[in-house]
C-alpha cells in the first residue's frame, strides 16, 4: 500500500508500524516530530501506530530561521 511522507509517495507492506517507516528513512540521528493526517503522533506512540492506505505523514526538524 501507499502512504505519503513529506509529500513523497512511499510503498510499504500492510500492517507496517510508524516506527518501521521511520527506520527506513535514515533520520535516526535527528531530533524530529511526526504528524499523521494532521494529528501529532508522540514518540511513545510510534511503535504501536499502524499505517493505513494513503496516510499523510509529515516529519519535521528544526532549521535555521528568524
Amino acid at each position: 500500500m501507499n502512504i505519503i511522507v513529506n509529500g513523497e509517495t512511499i510503498s510499504i507492506a500492510p500492517n507496517t508500524s510508524l516506527s518501521k517507516v521511520i527506520d527506513t528513512l535514515n533520520i535516526k540521528n535527528q531530533r524530529f516530530a511526526v504528524e499523521v493526517n494532521g494529528e501529532i503522533v508522540t514518540r511513545s506512540e510510534h511503535n504501536h501506530y499502524q499505517m493505513k492506505e494513503n496516510d499523510k505523514v509529515e516529519i519535521v526538524v528544526a532549521v535555521g530561521g528568524g
Binding site: V5, E8, I59, V60, V61, A62, V63, G64, G65
Partner: peptide
C-alpha cells in the same frame, strides 16, 4: 529562534 521544516527523508543522510 528556529524554524520548523520537513526533514529530508534520507536524501542527505
Amino acid at each position: 529562534t528556529v524554524a520548523i521544516r520537513r526533514t529530508n527523508i534520507g536524501q542527505h543522510p
